[in-house]
Amino acid sequence: MTTLTVKIESLEDTMARAVSVVSQWDSAVMEDPAVTLSFPSWEVMHRVLAPKRLDILKVLVGQGPLSIREVARRLGRDFEGVHTDVDTLVQNGVVDKTKGGIVFPYERVHFDFDIRAAA
């Protein structure tokens, strides 16, 4: 099962994780790296993965390519609004745009972050 893990982490943490994955390429036993989408803050994550955009992902899970029109129909939303949301998801690497339509190539989304008290 392919899972997209969404994290809130600093650029330094993201880079350290990337270096760790790259360093494993030379080892004989390389773990299958998790597919991770990182955001620097809750606010940025929420801007990209707003509730209506998460609804789009729910429609796309396990469906293969769907047209934006079909996604809008399934959600009961207008085409223009869904198109704008899909563009944001594509630009942020959450969904892929293909000749056949838009695709969410994962079977689930896992959110992995802590919320701490403000400093």
Results as ranks from 00 to 15, higher is better:
Ile102Cys: 09
Lys7Pro: 00
Asp32Phe: 03
Glu9His: 08
Thr5Val: 15
Phe111Tyr: 11
Gly100Cys: 03
Asp26His: 10
Ser41Asn: 04
Glu9Leu: 13
Ala34Phe: 11
Leu75Trp: 07
Gly64Trp: 14
Ser67Phe: 00
Val86Thr: 08
Leu89Trp: 12
Asp112Lys: 11
Lys52His: 07
Ser41Cys: 01
Phe111Ser: 01
His110Pro: 08
Val19Arg: 07
Val71Gln: 02
Leu89Ala: 04
His83Leu: 11
Gln24Gly: 04
Thr2Asp: 14
Leu11Val: 14
Asp112Glu: 15
Thr2Phe: 01
Val21Phe: 01
Met45Thr: 10
Asp112Thr: 10
Arg53Ile: 00
Thr14Asn: 12
Ala118Trp: 02
Lys58Ala: 07
Leu11Glu: 13
Glu12Thr: 13
Gln63Ile: 06
Lys97Thr: 10
Thr98Tyr: 13
Val109Pro: 07
Leu4His: 06
Ala34Tyr: 12
Asp78Lys: 01
Gln63Asp: 00
Val95Ala: 08
Leu75Tyr: 02
Glu43Met: 09
Glu9Trp: 02
Thr14Asp: 06
Pro51Cys: 09
Trp42Arg: 09
Val6Phe: 05
Thr2Ala: 13
Val103Ser: 12
His46Leu: 13
Val59Ala: 06
Ile56Gln: 03
Val19Asp: 12
Ser67Glu: 04
Arg74Asp: 05
Ile115Ala: 02
Thr84Ser: 02
Asp87Gln: 03
Asp26Tyr: 11
Arg77Pro: 05
Thr36Pro: 03
Val44Cys: 04
Ser23Arg: 14
Gly101Lys: 11
Pro65Arg: 13
Asp13Glu: 15
His110Asp: 15
Pro105Phe: 12
Ser27Asn: 09
His46Cys: 08
Thr36Glu: 14
Val48Ile: 13
Asp78Trp: 02
Val19Lys: 11
Arg17Trp: 11
Glu31Gly: 12
Ile8Gly: 06
Arg77Val: 05
Pro65Asp: 08
Phe39Met: 07
Val21Cys: 09
Ile102Gln: 06
Arg47Phe: 14
Ser67Ile: 12
Gly100Phe: 15
Glu80Gln: 09
Arg69Ala: 10
Phe39Ala: 10
Met1Asn: 13
Val71Ile: 01
Ala119Ser: 01
Arg74Trp: 07
Val48Asp: 05
Val21Asp: 05
Val61Pro: 02
Val109Asp: 14
Ala34Glu: 15
Arg73Ala: 08
Asp78Met: 00
Gly100Arg: 13
Leu11Pro: 08
Ala72Arg: 09
Gly81Tyr: 05
Ala119Val: 10
Ile68Gly: 06
Trp25Val: 13
Arg53Met: 08
His83Ala: 04
Pro40Gly: 06
Val44Met: 15
Gly81Ala: 03
Glu43Ala: 11
His46Lys: 14
Asp78Glu: 06
Asp114Ala: 15
Arg47Met: 04
Tyr106Ala: 06
Arg53Ala: 10
Pro33Ala: 03
Asp78Asn: 02
Thr14Ile: 10
Ala34Val: 12
Glu107Gly: 15
Leu57Glu: 00
Asp114Trp: 05
Lys99Val: 13
Val61Ala: 11
Ser27Tyr: 14
Glu107Gln: 15
Gly81Lys: 01
Arg116Leu: 07
Leu11Arg: 14
Arg17Leu: 10
Thr98Gly: 12
Arg69Glu: 06
Glu43Phe: 10
Met45Trp: 04
Leu75Ala: 02
Ser41Arg: 03
Phe79Cys: 13
